[in-house]
Simulated scan of single mutants.
Amino acid sequence: MSGNSYLPALSKQVSELVLAGSLSHAEQAFSDAVEEHGDLAVVEVLANLAPQVTALHLSGFDGGKTSLATLLVPPKAWADSLAFIAATWSDDMIEDDPERVAESLFSHVHGIVFSTDDQERRADLLFEASASDHGATIFAILFSMAPKEILEVAEEIISKGPYMTGQTSSDSDLVPLAIELAKASEDGWDRSLFELFPDFRHSADLADAEFSDDPDEEPKFMQRSTRELLYRLRKQVPSSRSSVPKRGARKSIGTDIFS
């Protein structure tokens, strides 16, 4: 890009605005940059912002509120920013209302992933987001809100592969996200399942697992709770001195389910 000397200045301006809590002004700066220099200018700034700043900025546009940053954030930059999202939660929030914290996290992830109809971008976002330990924990947190449905999806993926319908016993918003994740990254899908159900080491084992409809009955196998997973994610927030955690060394342990 020619004449990109304005990019460092724009990055500095946006960072300062976000850290000061002026998200609407940061968005305006992006909007002005798009008008003057095109989308690529904003993509480049978002690619180079500190991930803590990106996390703060994007978390202000959850759910129905779209933003240029939501639409243009590069998949890798978003994935790195997710490592810091738990830093905004207090112990009290996790302790008192873990479901509410998980729902706000779902709103954030769903808002980014489904902000576009571009299948390739959606797959890239999910692939990058689930490629790290903190990413796997984030998807496990979301799936912990509907574990029975997630097991049903796992079973259908194993039995039907690309011919799956995604129909489960309840109409959970998590199911479309789970299916998109499984299509985008088998490794990311597996890692998230094993984070939620640590007793399992291969997704085929999950197909035989059964959930009781009685909420008071003890589960037959270990499942991490939403609260426990939220605390796990908190422990994975990098310190400001360290770099963002790299992709875990664990290899994929399945076969290509959608080939």
Rank of each mutant, 00 (worst) to 15 (best):
L56P: 00
D97Y: 07
R250Q: 14
T168N: 02
T137S: 15
E16K: 14
S67M: 00
L181C: 01
A79K: 04
F258W: 15
D133W: 00
T165P: 03
T255Q: 14
K12Q: 13
S243T: 15
E128A: 15
D118N: 11
S212Y: 02
Q167C: 10
T116N: 05
D214P: 06
L82F: 04
E95S: 02
P198A: 08
L46P: 03
S240H: 10
L82S: 08
F139V: 02
T116Q: 06
G248C: 05
S115T: 08
E228A: 13
D214N: 13
A207H: 06
A86T: 11
G161L: 04
A77D: 07
F197A: 04
A87E: 11
E186L: 02
E152Y: 10
F143V: 08
W78S: 07
V43N: 00
S170R: 13
T88E: 13
P98V: 06
G38V: 00
V34S: 01
G3Y: 10
V45E: 01
F61E: 09
L125Y: 05
V34T: 10
D190Y: 05
Y231P: 01
L196K: 01
M222I: 04
E99W: 06
Q167V: 07
P238I: 04
P215I: 04
S242F: 07
R224K: 15
L229H: 13
R122D: 02
V109W: 10
A33M: 12
F194G: 05
L230T: 00
K183R: 14
S22G: 03
R121A: 05
L49D: 02
W189A: 10
I253S: 03
D199G: 06
Q28W: 01
S212F: 01
L230I: 14
G166W: 10
D173Q: 08
P162C: 11
E210F: 11
R100V: 07
D118L: 05
Q223W: 08
P219Q: 03
D96Q: 14
Q52S: 14
E149W: 01
L82C: 02
P74S: 05
V113P: 11
L23C: 12
W189D: 08
T255S: 13
A204G: 08
D199C: 08
V113G: 02
L49H: 03
Q119S: 12
I253D: 14
D92T: 06
L71D: 09
A102V: 05
P8W: 12
S240E: 14
D173H: 04
A184H: 11
F30L: 00
E120D: 15
E149I: 02
S81L: 11
R234V: 08
P8H: 05
F258G: 06
D213M: 12
I94Y: 10
S243V: 10
F114L: 11
F143N: 06
T88W: 02
T66S: 14
V34I: 14
